[in-house]
Amino acid sequence: YFQGQLNAMAHQIQEMFPQVPYHLVLQDLQLTRSVEITTDNILEGRI
């Protein structure tokens, strides 16, 4: 994955969860590489 793709995914998640800091979303995406998994992590309070 290149950074631009991760940034696009992070923006997509931020639209759904504007209360979660962008850098935390991006940090999780770098591990998961998945909008779905990061979204689940937010919903389950891991982020």
Rank of each mutant, 00 (worst) to 15 (best):
Y1Q: 12
F2L: 14
H23F: 11
T39A: 09
L6G: 02
A10T: 04
F2Q: 11
V25I: 15
L26P: 00
T32G: 02
R33I: 07
D28H: 03
E44S: 15
F2D: 15
R46L: 08
E36V: 09
I42K: 00
I42W: 04
L26Y: 11
M16W: 08
I42R: 01
V20R: 01
Y22M: 09
I37W: 10
I42S: 01
Q3M: 09
E36W: 10
G4E: 15
Q12F: 13
Q27N: 09
L43S: 07
P18H: 03
I13L: 10
Y22A: 06
L26R: 04
L31P: 00
A8S: 09
E36R: 12
N41W: 04
A10P: 00
G45K: 06
Q5V: 13
Q3V: 08
R33F: 14
V35H: 04
M16D: 05
I13R: 00
R46A: 04
Q5D: 14
L43F: 06
D40L: 15
F2K: 08
D28L: 07
D28A: 05
Q3F: 06
F17S: 01
Q30N: 08
V25R: 00
L26E: 04
E15L: 15
M9W: 15
H11I: 12
G4V: 11
P21G: 04
V20Q: 03
L29A: 01
R33D: 05
L24I: 09
H23E: 11
Y1D: 15
A8F: 13
L6A: 04
Q3N: 10
E15N: 10
N41P: 01
F2G: 12
E36Y: 10
E44Y: 14
A8E: 12
I47D: 01
A8G: 07
E44T: 14
L29E: 00
L24W: 10
N7E: 15
H23W: 14
R33E: 07
N41M: 02
I47L: 14
Q14P: 00
Q3D: 14
D28F: 07
E44I: 09
L43Q: 08
T39Y: 07
R46F: 06
N7K: 14
M16S: 07
D40C: 15
H23D: 10
V25K: 00
V20D: 02
L31I: 13
F17M: 03
M16P: 00
H11M: 14
T38G: 00
Q12E: 09
V20L: 09
I13H: 01
H23K: 08
T38A: 01
H23G: 07
L6P: 02
L31R: 13
L24K: 07
E44K: 15
I37Y: 07
R33S: 07
Q27D: 07
T38I: 01
G4D: 14
F17P: 00
D40W: 15
Q14G: 08
E15A: 13
I47E: 01
Q3W: 07
N41A: 03
A8N: 09
Q27F: 11
T38M: 03
Q30S: 10
Q14A: 12
Q3H: 07
G4A: 13
Q14S: 13
P18W: 05
R46T: 05
R46I: 06
Q5T: 11
E15D: 10
Q27S: 10
F2Y: 11
L26M: 09
R46V: 05
G45Q: 05
L26F: 09
Y1G: 13
M16G: 04
L31K: 12
Y22S: 05
I47V: 10
L31M: 12
G4W: 15
G45S: 05
M16R: 13
L6D: 03
L29M: 03
G4N: 11
L29Q: 00
F2A: 10
H11P: 01
I42G: 00
Q27R: 11
H23I: 10
Q30L: 14
R46K: 10
L24H: 06
S34D: 07
N41L: 02
Q19E: 11
E44Q: 15
Q27Y: 11
S34I: 04
H23A: 09
R33Y: 13
L43V: 09
P18Q: 05
Y22F: 13
L24F: 07
T38H: 01
I37Q: 11
I13A: 01
S34P: 01
E44L: 13
Q27I: 10
Y22N: 04
V20E: 02
N41C: 10
N41Q: 01
G45H: 06
Y1I: 14
I13P: 00
L24V: 09
V35I: 12
R33P: 01
A8P: 03
D40I: 15
Q3S: 07
Q30Y: 15
D40E: 14
Q27W: 13
A10N: 00
I13E: 00
L6E: 03
V20F: 10
L24Y: 07
L31W: 11
V25P: 00
L29V: 05
Q27V: 08
L31E: 11
Q12T: 10
L6I: 10
T32A: 02
P18S: 05
P21R: 05
Q5R: 09
Q14W: 15
E15G: 09
T39P: 00
G45A: 04
F17A: 01
V25N: 01
A8I: 12
E15C: 14
I37V: 11
G4M: 13
A10E: 01
I42Q: 01
A10D: 00
V25L: 10
T39I: 15
P21E: 08
A10F: 06
R46N: 05
L29R: 00
S34C: 05
L26Q: 04
T39R: 12
A10V: 09
Q19T: 10
V25M: 04
M9A: 06
T39N: 03
I37P: 00
Y1T: 12
R46Y: 06
I42F: 03
A10C: 05
D28N: 06
T39G: 04
G45I: 04
V25G: 00
V20K: 00
Q3R: 10
G4S: 13
E15W: 10
A8D: 10
Q30W: 15
A10Y: 05
I47W: 06
P21I: 06
T39S: 08
M16I: 09
L31S: 09
Q5P: 08
Q14N: 11
P21W: 06
N41E: 01
E15Y: 12
M16V: 08
I37N: 06
H11N: 09
D28V: 06
R46G: 03
L29H: 00
H11Y: 12
R33W: 15
E15Q: 14
M16T: 07
E36D: 09
I47R: 02
N7C: 14
Y22W: 10
T32M: 02
H11W: 12
H11F: 12
T39E: 04
V35T: 06
I13Y: 01
F17W: 05
V25T: 03
T32P: 00
L24E: 05
